[in-house]
């Protein structure tokens, strides 16, 4: 990547993930998946923090557990896709663990930190992460399930 984000101060309850091989699960809304392609729009944060993209650490939860937790909250997901810490760093972002922070209730919660990136750099990062996630393919559910909560087996 041509641009790395400027240093952004972390909260005391946060820390940077350093195991390059660790995968982080990203829940992707069905509007951001067509066929096997994950769109770059899947890597945008919430309205209050567009540059903080929620993920869940694979060292704490499985792809299925991450999916189940997300959909149990009533949120829509087509499934869990995976990005490694190294891929985030290459895309110019940092992977941050914030599971110990107040108000964070998702086990193993972490986020892709795009704060400090310029708008073009964020677009580059999102497309890069979408490319990597697409290459790796959906991690849960497996073939035959769409990932919508209505398709889940009891």
């Amino acid at each position: 990547m041509s641009e790395h984000q400027e240093d952004v101060e972390l909260e005391p309850c946060e820390f940077v993930l350093e195991d390059d091989a660790e995968r982080l699960w990203r829940q992707v809304h069905p509007e951001f998946v067509q066929g096997h392609v994950v769109l770059a729009g899947a890597f945008v944060g919430t309205p209050t923090a567009r540059s903080k993209v929620s993920t869940v650490r694979s060292s704490v939860r499985t792809a299925k557990q991450a999916f189940d937790h997300h959909t149990t909250l009533g949120l829509t997901s087509a499934g869990s896709w995976a990005i490694t810490v190294d891929e985030m760093n290459v895309a110019g972002c940092q992977a941050i663990d914030d599971a110990a922070c107040e108000g964070v209730e998702t086990p193993g919660h972490s986020y892709i930190d795009m704060r400090g990136l310029s708008k073009p750099a964020r677009k580059l990062a999102r497309a890069t992460l979408a490319q990597r996630a697409t290459q790796r393919g959906r991690q849960f559910p497996g073939v035959g399930l769409t990932g919508r909560s209505s398709d889940r087996r009891p």
Partner: peptide, 11 residues
């Protein structure tokens, strides 16, 4: 509007 062909993403 995107495509991913032979590993190359165009977005």
């Amino acid at each position: 509007v995107e495509q991913q062909v032979a590993g190359t993403r165009w977005s």
